[in-house]
Amino acid sequence: MAETLIPKIATPATTLTAAKTGTPLIEIENLSLYYGAAKALKDISLKLEEKVVTAFIGPSGCGKSTLLRCLNRMNDLIDNVRIDGAIKIGSHDIYAANVDVIELRKRVGMVFQKSNPFPKSIYENVAYGLRLHGFQSKSELDGTVEQSLRNAALWDEVKDRLHSSALGLSGGQQQRLCIARAIAIKPEIILMDEPASALDPIATTRIEELILELKKDFTIVIVTHNMQQAARISNYTAFFYIGELVEFDVTAKIFTNPAKKQTEDYVTGRFG
């Protein structure tokens, strides 16, 4: 418990730059994104490693959420969005013409800012994705639902009311349910869009503990407004400002000795 309150800084083994060490799972190459004529992301290149937590930080409107939503192509749902450049996940270009977006989203899960459980029972929320992807047998479903809820540190709180409505849960519980729902279908990457911004400090702590636990099995990309949170949970941090990637490095370096003046101003709270 105490450990999580101290900023968790990346271990010395990974204190080199990201690209040079572990295998990059996600490669963003010269990515630009337009809403109609407005350019929201400007020529971003970034390599993200497997099974680590990467945080995107920056002031509102800097494009960090937009970039996150590019990674599972949720931006496809918005009219008038155009993309230049490429994103490769495990060396597959996810914007190639023959990509099945459905398959992509199965492998790149997402947790949203506002918890959005379905108006169904707790059990059905977790089982929803499983059923979509062909799991039918009850024992299989039961097992995976329990395992997912355990992994999301929610099992003990809900095991007696699995079949009551998910909307009866508290905000923090709902968000953990959404995490359980996302991990149930075993994605490789989990995108988190300010998952704790609507929660109280205790619930936030629990989510953060959970994220640290989950990075053993998943690659996590998290957008956050909260710099302490980024410092506590992430291995790498990318700082964005008005659609541009200003700096990307090991979290400890970003927060203690950033290369750019803009980054320093932001992390020390001088603007944003």
Partner: peptide, 11 residues
């Protein structure tokens, strides 16, 4: 990753 199935896969 096997995401290359394309829309033809969902008639």
């Amino acid at each position: 990753m096997g995401i290359h199935r394309g829309h033809q896969a969902r008639p």
